[in-house]
């Protein structure tokens, strides 16, 4: 059976991942270029998140064994990242004077950053190959 990672619901995931790579990347770029000193940690985290989204998009588009592995690592990093940063941003507001993509569990982005890796992992599991 052909790998259906990048068709059907996978295509919707690729669309949203690509959009988030663009949104997070552009935002981080503007923030780092114009006022990096104000909140370096938050801005670097946004840039890191953007890179992870970009690589996840690539993994999902590519498919196959390597694509799956890339997507699996990225979705896991995202889920851990949004949970860790979300918790830290609520516990220690001083460290996050300006929001990053993952602050407050991604509430600035309609909680999509929290939902997206879960959907990604679920989709990877649904389309897994079962060996004979």
């Amino acid at each position: 059976m052909a790998d259906r990672l990048n068709t059907g619901p996978g295509r919707v995931l690729i669309f949203v991942y690509g959009l988030f790579a663009l949104a997070a990347g552009a935002r981080a770029g503007v923030q780092i270029a114009t006022r990096f000193g104000a909140a370096p940690l938050a801005y670097l985290l946004s840039a890191f998140a953007a890179v992870v989204y970009l690589v996840a998009t690539y993994g999902l588009v590519r498919g196959g064994r390597a694509g799956r592995r890339i997507a699996l690592v990225c979705c896991t990093v995202e889920l851990l990242g949004v949970l860790a940063v979300g918790t830290l941003s609520l516990a220690d507001r001083a460290a996050f004077p300006d929001d990053s993509v993952w602050s407050g569990y991604g509430r600035g982005y309609g909680w999509v950053p929290l939902v997206l890796p879960v959907l990604g992992l679920a989709w990877l599991y649904r389309t897994r190959r079962t060996r004979p």
Partner: peptide
């Protein structure tokens, strides 16, 4: 981008992408 993805995915998931 929505139109391009809808063309590539002529299933209900294409409609989902357009909705998104």
């Amino acid at each position: 981008a929505g139109v391009a993805l809808a063309r590539m995915e002529p299933t209900r998931w294409g409609s989902t992408t357009v909705c998104g």
